Computed example of a mutant assay.
Amino acid sequence: MANSRAARLTPVVDMAEKAERTAAQRLGHFQGQVRLSETKLAELDRYREDYQAQWHTYGSKGVSGQWLMNYQRFLNQLETAVAQQKQSLAWHQKNLDNARVTWQQAYARVEGLRKLVQRYIDEARQLEDKREQKLLDELSQRLPRQSSF
């Protein structure tokens, strides 16, 4: 009886495992997106620092007004790109956090179902053991007793 309960749960466990695998894949995807976004932000930061270093190099020698305007315009564009990349990173991090919660819930569901199935299997084994013991007890009582004279 309990074994049949465990067997009936097999499709449910399979579906839960599939959902957990899908959630794990999504989690991995979003981890990759966060890493990629972090890398792009770091590159933009390095590029901005290098570009700002040009001011120290060329500024000390004297620059034209046109050069300074172009420098400021491009530096503003870099600042905008950095701010946008930070927003993108925050968005990807939020997706990652949500995916992590979803995966944790799916994992907990699978583990709970596996424990339930194992409990049903254990109960079936115990019932079968009791049934066998009862049968053996009945058989031993029916056997003629041999007296020792």
Rank of each mutant, 00 (worst) to 15 (best):
R109I: 00
S147R: 12
Q133R: 15
L96D: 06
D137T: 07
S4Q: 14
T80A: 15
L44F: 07
E111W: 08
R119M: 07
L68S: 09
A53Q: 05
R100Y: 09
T10C: 02
D122T: 03
G62R: 08
A24Q: 11
Q52V: 00
L139A: 12
Q31Y: 01
L75I: 03
F74R: 10
A99V: 00
A19Y: 04
K115G: 03
E38K: 10
A124P: 01
A106G: 10
L96G: 08
L36V: 02
Q54L: 13
Q126S: 10
Q133F: 13
A99T: 02
E43F: 02
Y47P: 01
K86P: 09
R46L: 08
V101T: 14
N70I: 01
M15G: 08
N95K: 14
T22S: 06
R35Y: 05
K134S: 13
T80M: 12
Q146H: 11
A99K: 03
S60E: 11
A53N: 05
D129P: 00
V101H: 14
F30P: 00
R142C: 04
W67V: 01
E20D: 12
R35V: 06
E20R: 15
A16H: 11
A106S: 13
K94Q: 13
Q77Y: 04
L27F: 00
L127Y: 04
H29D: 02
T57C: 01
R46V: 05
K61R: 14
R131Y: 06
T102F: 01
L9G: 10
R35C: 02
A16E: 09
L75H: 12
E49G: 09
Q93S: 13
E38Q: 15
L68I: 06
L143H: 07
W67Y: 06
L36C: 03
W91Q: 14
Q84E: 08
S148L: 07
R73G: 03
Q72S: 14
L135R: 15
S60T: 10
S88N: 13
Q105M: 05
Y120P: 00
E20T: 10
L68V: 06
T22N: 10
Y107W: 08
K18Y: 14
D137G: 04
G62D: 05
K40G: 03
H29Q: 06
R100K: 15
D97G: 06
T39F: 07
R26V: 02
A99I: 00
L135P: 01
S37N: 05
Y58F: 04
A99H: 03
R145T: 12
Q33F: 03
Q54C: 03
L143S: 07
L116T: 05
Q104D: 13
W55H: 06
Y107A: 14
W103F: 14
W103R: 15
K86W: 04
V82T: 12
Q77N: 13
G112P: 09
R131L: 04
Q33R: 15
S60V: 07
R109S: 08
F74H: 13
